[in-house]
Design a protein around this nucleic acid. Structure first.
Lengths: 202, 202
DNA sequence: CGCTGTGAATTGCTTCACAGCC
DNA sequence: GGCTGTGAAGCAATTCACAGCG
């Protein structure tokens, strides 16, 4: 069965919410509460959960630990995944140090920048390299995810390098859209557009 | 007529793309090229543009300058808007210095943090204040947009302060969902979820 | 021709309604 | 009684198909 794209996104959010509830030692959660937490309706939550075949056994809602377990299974979120950041400007270095990634299952194992000077100045526990070494490092370390935070003019080139090095997914923070082979999972966070989308609704 | 939410988002992207094309002095653009640039279909682009009543006059596509002009009008993207950042950790300071915001119509006019030490250490041309001054500064300066980059536990409190101070929209980068009065335009960028949404499709 | 503009067809998503269960 | 699970209904969004136009 094919899972709709919207459903996958919501299930990821549900997974995150279950993580929060689990840490608070909450045992059960209703579709209604999940709906509020992720901003949708209880019907949709129930349909989504049933869609992936998780039949969250019933009583006073879903059992937090087991639902999270099963979602992790289905969504492939159980194993820690390796990621890298390309472009160590303000945004890139901020992401490099975003502690939450690690606890949420993503290990940022490398950073890359074209400027050697910048690389020397950065003080972080994560290894930083020149872009020239990108393809080697990414493939050697089996990095699965590339995060792009370079200026517009280099975004496509970096994406191509990441793909050649074998990443499976790319998250693009640069201000331009890029093209990647369709077997690469790609998504983009456009900061300006996020603000515009808000302002357009004023 | 009521414009669907998806359409608004896409029109904002089209606006951004027209901006890029305009700088390259490109005069005309087809629905097909716009579709590729923003990741949708030509049908949808045409529907979207027609939906807001802009009847982009035809020949070899849409006239870049005039379509952008009209979109700016309809989407309220013509005036520079004032915004502030709350939470000057790594991410917050990165956003504070994100030069593109200004040229894209958003003036970051203030930054806030709860730590006085941090405020003293930050060197930027933008005024930084203690969170205690948030409500005063935001209402005095008529700041319309609040960007939240504080840790989870303070996100809701900051949102409440921003709303009391009179912002019209909030963009939340913190790792938790927050609740705001429904006349406030709200959206959230969840970095972890962005990565999870990619990994779930591997 | 090539490209827009748009009713009609279609697809897909969400909501409803209610049976089933503890 | 409260909450899940799910076929059916309803709604919204996308896609199609083709007329219109320079």
């Amino acid at each position: 069965m094919n899972i709709p794209s919207n459903t996958i996104d919501r299930l990821c959010k549900i997974f995150g919410q279950l993580d929060i509830l689990g840490k608070k030692s909450i045992e059960f959660v209703s579709s209604k509460d999940l709906a509020i937490a992720i901003g949708t309706t209880e019907y949709t939550v129930r349909k989504d959960i049933s869609l992936i075949g998780v039949t969250g056994f019933t009583r006073k809602g879903y059992e937090v630990v087991s639902l999270k377990e099963q979602l992790g299974e289905k969504l492939n979120l159980k194993t820690q995944r390796k990621a890298c950041i390309v472009g160590l400007g303000r945004l890139g270095t901020a992401l490099l140090d975003y502690e939450k990634f690690k606890q949420d299952g993503f290990d940022i194992v490398a950073g890359f920048d074209s400027s050697i000077n910048k690389i020397e100045r950065i003080h972080t526990s994560i290894d930083v390299f020149s872009v020239a070494e990108l393809e080697n490092v990414v493939s050697q370390c089996n990095i699965e995810l590339g995060i792009i935070a370079v200026p517009s003019e280099h975004a496509q080139d970096i994406a191509d390098k990441l793909v050649r090095a074998g990443v499976k997914g790319i998250l693009n923070f640069s201000p331009v859209e890029i093209n990647v082979n369709e077997n690469i999972i790609y998504s983009r966070i456009d900061l300006t557009n996020a603000l515009r989308s808000i302002a357009a609704r004023f």
